[in-house]
């Protein structure tokens, strides 16, 4: 809090009172000590010889990665197609499952505030807390390796994302429009279709495309845990220490991600 005080008979001015200033310095001190403490705990088992060795390792790695073995690209088209399919089908499935959850979670549309809403919110937060890669790890253990595990992993992670953004949009809808539709004697379902849907459609489409773009990036690495796509090839090459191939795969991932980001940005700009 700012403060003006009388000191030695003159009006002085300081941004904060003495006590507030002290409290702020103290908070900074505690914060810095806390971070240093975390650093110490974290590095309890760090082997510093390896760390000091890092620049040399980095140079070594770069040396091995160059020149890239471009011929490997011919093996990558199939996995890339799988990657894109995992992202696209996973997004679609996530939307199909996430949209009803959003309707259950939004205060404005939920059938019951006491039962349905908390359950829907729990589904959303659980899905959001857990990265697609962990979902994939789990599903590969259950379903076996393959694209299917990847699709479901992407879908499970997308439910929370789509659900959260969509239910927030539903809660921000214009109440007077809904009121007008209700006043015509519309049923619950008609209210959804004529009152809510027109208001949230652009947001919904935007969210979906945005999530698709994120999912492309995520699905490039799902193969690391066995769920198909280019990550599978990457994992194989890394474990064989075939670094010239890894370079090509990095390049392929980079291009895929950039293209999907570009497409998503274009589509979203068009929607809005």
């Amino acid at each position: 809090m700012p403060n003006s005080e009388l000191s030695q008979g003159r009006i002085g001015w300081q941004r904060r009172t003495g006590r507030a200033r002290l409290a702020i310095w103290f908070a900074w001190l505690v914060g810095v000590l806390f971070i240093v403490q975390c650093w110490d705990i974290m590095n309890a088992e760090t082997i510093w010889d390896f760390v000091w060795d890092a620049p040399q390792q980095a140079g070594d790695l770069l040396g091995r990665m160059w020149p890239p073995r471009w011929s490997v690209l011919n093996r990558l088209w199939g996995p890339l197609w799988d990657t894109i399919n995992m992202a696209t089908l996973g997004t679609l499935l996530g939307i199909v499952l996430g949209a009803p959850v959003a309707f259950l979670a939004a205060r404005t549309t939920t059938p019951s505030l006491l039962i349905a809403r908390p359950i829907a919110l729990l589904i959303i937060v659980s899905s959001r807390s857990i990265n697609a890669l962990i979902w994939a790890l789990l599903l590969v253990t259950i379903l076996g390796p393959g694209v299917l595990a990847g699709i479901i992993a992407i879908a499970l992670r997308s439910i929370g994302f789509v659900g959260k953004l969509l239910y927030e949009a539903l809660e921000e809808t214009d109440a007077s429009q809904i009121e007008a539709i209700t006043a015509t004697g519309a049923t619950r379902g008609q209210r959804l279709i004529f009152g809510f849907l027109p208001q949230i459609m652009p947001v919904f489409a935007g969210i979906s495309v945005y999530r698709w773009d994120i999912n492309i990036r995520e699905s490039t690495v799902l193969g690391l845990v066995g769920a198909g796509g280019i990550g599978l090839q990457l994992n194989a090459s890394v474990s064989r220490l075939a670094w010239p191939e890894v370079t090509v795969m990095f390049a392929a991932i980079l291009v895929t991600v950039i293209v999907s980001e570009y497409v998503s940005a274009k589509v979203r700009a068009h929607i809005i």
Binding site: I11, G12, W13
Partner: peptide, 13 residues
Amino acid sequence: LRRFPQTDVDEAF
């Protein structure tokens, strides 16, 4: 640090 000379603060008031 917002440490302006006292003369500046006087003038500001």
